[in-house]
Design a protein around this nucleic acid. Structure first.
Length: 588
RNA sequence: GGGGACGUGGUGUAGCCUGGUUUAACACACUGCCCUGUCAAGGCAGAGACCGCGGGUUCAAAUCCCGUCGUCCCCGCCA
């Protein structure tokens, strides 16, 4: 039997015609005299009917079980009056089976294939081929395909060229841990899988390809999270003879197109823009979720001469005091507030000061240390109402911002302040060039070492902390969708940046001398951006984890329960690679 | 490297705090039978777990303690 239609495509216009459909038995409803089967393929579910008049076929139908694979031929007809199912796209019609081929059978399943039943992550990954049969999952993957095609179409029309860059490259000194691949022909040497196509795409600009893109797999050997996998996909692009606005404009138009196609949502362009410093102050994050207010406020001024020694000491040491007003939080119990304290402790905060706003002022165990006008100033700054809870962190700026930022998000979620139907796009701009690494006592590139400073920035040790970069991150609903920058195209500027980063000339030459060489041969001004494609798809699908939009992801411990990767290899393989010692992890 | 949550028939959970009256309960799935219009079908009957694994406490452990393994979330890390 040759398939004439997908299940999901059999609609009213097929009524009166014969169709042949193929698929899996999604469910079977045996009424004794009539048997219904929901036949499922990637396009949807179609009801097929077996009636007892056709004894031979009816006997076959009685033996069908979940996930058997069928080909059936029959007449499409309107369902009898009163039996139309308005919840199904194909609910108006049904196929009366005249011929059937049972193409395959299946044993009892390890879990139900249903959008209604949650199964443990491990089982789902072990039987990923069954997990992926779930209609929601299929929908996610069809969406992912459509989004990637929309991106390709858009970029093609805008004049971008798709060019592939190598997976086997050279290990780079900064950034994430590389995956290494031993070189069989050069014992003792290793290729590295790319963390991103960054250097290659810049060299493509030097080569004159002007507008490049690639939907590229990237690899980072770091610990996994709900939004991080060892390998992930980036929409990577780079352009020549452009400035920040040009690159940002491409991304805005592209994302607007994608959201229109995928969700029929109109995205307003241009996106809002917020300087990095403002994002850190108001939201305690470089990827603010602006779907709800509850902003952080600074109280260094209000408390500069307060009588609370904890605050005074922090200020004296150059720290800061900021606070958050939790609406109706005064009802929190002491242990709930202890929970909040523990929560901000994860971000390095040593404590959490708090006061409950009352009709007359505020109350808590520390209120006595403050003057009335200090408390009034705080309440006025927040516009706080009686019944609200105000919490403060006092510490070095990074800890305060991160702690309150995380607390803001947690409270926003728990208090239901977030409108899930909103898509708030935002550019975070004016990033600093460098960030001081306390542990290593040196400047680190906030973005990457090829990021151009703003015009006229002095690249001196004294100004390193103030220098701003031509860098931009695109944020959606508190998720960092991607980021990019205008790159350094002049050798002299690059040299200065390396100096500040403490990368010696030799080290720079050794690690990416080929990029520096390339830049010296007439590099055009250029810049680009990379978007996390998995994160984008997860947001569109409304999924919390990118695993829901990746076909074969790894577990949190970086394992694949289906293939059992990673696995041991033979002595012979190791010998060929010139690897002599196998270090096995000790049992304890 | 660190913190937290979870682990009970095939699946999802309850029971665990306050150990014994649990022959470990419920729902879904599964098997058989009934049923000619269901669609997360319905009815009846049935099979199926010694409670992740190891050790300890106790007269007695799914329940308390220690360890271990696995899954997830978070911090660190991810330029």
């Amino acid at each position: 039997m040759k398939r004439s239609s997908y299940c999901g495509f059999v609609r009213e216009d097929s009524i009166g015609k014969d169709v042949t459909v193929c698929g899996w038995v999604h469910s079977r409803r045996d009424h004794g005299g009539v048997i219904f089967i929901d036949l499922r393929d990637r396009t949807g579910i179609l009801q097929i009917v077996f009636q007892p008049e056709n004894k031979e076929i009816f006997a076959v139908a009685e033996k069908l079980r979940s996930e058997y694979v069928l080909a059936v031929k029959g007449l499409v007809r309107n369902r009898p009056e009163g039996t139309v199912n308005p919840n199904m796209p194909t609910g108006q019609v049904e196929v009366v089976v005249a011929e059937i081929d049972v193409l395959n059978t299946a044993p009892g399943l390890p879990f139900e294939i249903s959008d209604y039943v949650e199964t443990s992550e491990e089982l789902r990954l072990k039987y990923r081929y069954l997990d992926m049969r779930r209609p929601n999952f299929q929908k996610n993957f069809i969406m992912r395909h459509n989004v990637s095609q929309e991106i390709r179409n858009f970029l093609n029309i805008e004049g971008f060229l798709e060019i592939e860059t190598p997976f086997l490259g050279k290990s780079t000194p900064e950034g994430a841990r590389d995956f290494l691949v031993p070189a069989r022909l050069h014992h003792g040497s290793f290729y590295a899988l790319p963390q991103s196509p960054q250097i290659f795409k810049q060299i493509l600009m030097v080569a004159g390809f002007d507008k490049y893109y690639q939907i590229a797999r990237c690899f980072r050997d770091e610990d996994l999270r709900a939004d991080r996998q060892l390998e992930f996909t980036q929409v990577d692009l780079e352009m020549s003879f452009v400035e920040e606005n040009d690159v940002m404009g491409v991304i805005e138009r592209m994302l607007a197109k994608v959201f229109k196609t995928a969700l029929n949502t109109d995205v307003k362009t241009p996106f809002a823009r917020m300087p990095y410093a403002e994002a850190m102050l108001r939201y305690g994050s470089d990827k603010p979720d602006t779907r709800f207010e509850m902003e952080i406020k600074d109280f260094c001024e209000e408390f500069k001469s307060c009588g609370f020694s904890v605050f005074a000491n922090v200020l004296a040491k150059g720290g800061i005091i900021r606070g958050l007003c939790i609406p109706k939080g005064a009802g929190f119990s002491r242990s709930e507030i202890d929970g909040l304290t523990k929560f901000v402790g994860e971000y390095g905060a040593k404590g959490l000061a708090w006061m409950k706003v009352t009709e007359t002022g505020a109350e808590s165990n520390i209120v006595k240390y403050f003057k009335d006008e200090e408390i009034k100033a705080v309440i006025a700054k927040f516009g706080a109402k009686p019944g609200d809870l105000i919490v403060y962190l006092a510490d070095e700026e990074k800890i305060v911002a991160q702690g309150l930022g995380a607390l803001r998000l947690k409270m926003g979620k728990e208090l239901g302040l977030i409108d899930k139907n909103k898509f708030n796009f935002l550019w975070v701009v004016d990033f600093p060039m460098f960030e001081w690494d306390k542990d290593e006592q040196r400047w680190q590139a906030l973005h990457h070492p090829f990021t151009s400073p703003k015009d006229g920035e002095a690249l001196t040790k004294e100004n390193a902390g103030n220098a701003k970069a031509k860098a931009y991150d695109v944020v959606l609903n508190g998720v960092e969708l991607g980021g990019g920058s205008i790159r350094i195209h002049q050798k002299e500027v690059q040299k200065k940046v390396f100096e500040l980063l403490n990368i010696t000339e030799e080290a720079a030459k050794e690690k990416f001398g080929f990029l520096l060489d390339a830049l010296s041969y007439g590099a055009p001004p250029h810049g680009g951006v990379a978007l996390g494609f998995d994160r984008l798809c997860a947001l569109i699908a409304g999924e919390e984890s990118i695993r829901e939009v990746i076909a074969f992801p790894k577990t949190q411990k970086a394992l694949d329960p289906m293939s059992n990767a990673p696995g041991e290899v033979s002595e012979k393989q190791l010998k060929e690679l010139g690897i002599r010692v196998v270090v096995k992890q000790a049992k304890n």
